[in-house]
């Protein structure tokens, strides 16, 4: 790893290196709760770039020429391959003029809007990862609007519950001797999930659909019920991340399959949601409904 080699290299002033490590780690720590600000900043900068590009009277093809002259068409192909965006470029270009794009976007936006509505729904969740997808998490996922969720996980000792909303995240262990844990911020969700051996990229439908809206190019089937797509920017040497989403007749999410194929199979994962036509009681989102009143509750 180049970064570590650099850290150990001789000759660099220790103070400069130490300050760089301090600053670099500080920036990473700022991002442990999420990278939304970076993604927003990237989009803002791209908007500024588009304005600059369009406002300068620059021909759309202007930047192509230097590359093509210097490296030829094959260089562009290599460039696309190296960036891992070959598929994304093709799809993006097609969608820029393709008649299906607005419909796909509208369908996804509609599903997102319905997911954001505070109508409780239940999904069966399956998350598999690793070589041969052998490490799996199966759970019932209850969602209500944005960021309100409850996960029911079957454990040898019974059912464990993990849930949360904008303000709080909570864990009710299956073992009744263990205390209920309350986290002060929703952003600690992933930490509490990890502590309970639950590894999930998403714990609510809105986050998953938002990721698809931002990072993926989507196509809509002729019947308007199936969306499929590929991640817009995928790392080099990675296969493109893909998803397949089925809408119900109301335009809400009926099922979702999201798959990531990494550089090595150990990093692969597949995330699936399947809606169940079950009436959801709002109390499922309250941790107190999952444990006895006298059970010890600790806050972290």
């Amino acid at each position: 790893m180049g970064r570590h080699d650099e850290v150990d290299r001789s000759g660099a002033p220790d103070t400069a290196r130490a300050e760089a490590i301090e600053r670099y780690t500080d920036q990473l720590l700022e991002r442990t709760a999420g990278d939304e600000r970076d993604r927003d900043a990237v989009e803002r900068a791209l908007r500024a770039w588009r304005r600059e590009r369009d406002g300068s009277g620059e021909s759309e093809s202007a930047p192509v020429l230097p590359l093509a002259r210097r490296f030829g068409r094959s260089a562009l192909v290599r460039l696309a391959s190296a960036a891992g965006v070959l598929l994304a470029v093709a799809v993006a270009a097609l969608f820029l003029i393709g008649p299906g794009a607005p419909t796909a976007d509208a369908a996804l936006a509609g599903a997102l809007e319905r997911a954001r509505a505070a109508t409780p729904r239940m999904y069966e969740l399956l998350f598999e990862r690793g070589l041969g997808f052998t490490r799996a998490v199966e759970a019932d996922l209850y969602v209500s609007g944005e960021q309100t969720f409850a996960l029911a996980l079957e454990k040898p000792a019974g059912t464990a519950w993990i849930g949360g909303d904008r303000a709080q995240v909570w864990v009710v262990p299956a073992n009744p001797q263990l205390p209920v844990v309350l986290g002060d911020r929703a952003r600690r969700t992933q930490q509490l999930l990890a502590e309970n051996d639950v590894e999930l990229p998403y714990v609510d439908v809105v986050s998953a659909l938002e990721a698809l809206s931002v990072d993926y190019d989507a196509a809509l089937s002729a019947d308007g019920l199936v969306l499929s797509g590929t991640k817009r920017a995928t790392a080099p040497e990675h296969k493109a991340d893909t998803f397949r989403l089925v809408l119900d007749e109301d335009g809400a999410l009926a099922s979702l399959e999201l798959e990531r194929r990494g550089r090595i199979a150990l990093g692969d994962w597949r995330f699936e949601l399947q809606a169940r036509d079950t009436e959801v009681d709002g109390s499922v989102f309250d941790h107190a409904s999952h444990h006895r009143a006298d059970r010890r509750v600790i806050e972290r």
Binding site: D35, D38, R39, A41, V42, A45, L46, W49, R53, S59, E60, S61, P63, V64, L67, L76, L79, A80, A83, G84, V85, A88, V89, A92, A93, L94, L96, I97, G98, D215, R232, A233, A235
Partner: peptide, 21 residues
Amino acid sequence: DAGPDTVPHALFEALVREHGP
């Protein structure tokens, strides 16, 4: 067919999204 001039723009955006963070 979709417009070859569009490709570098889309490619640049994809590269920026990948490396911008």
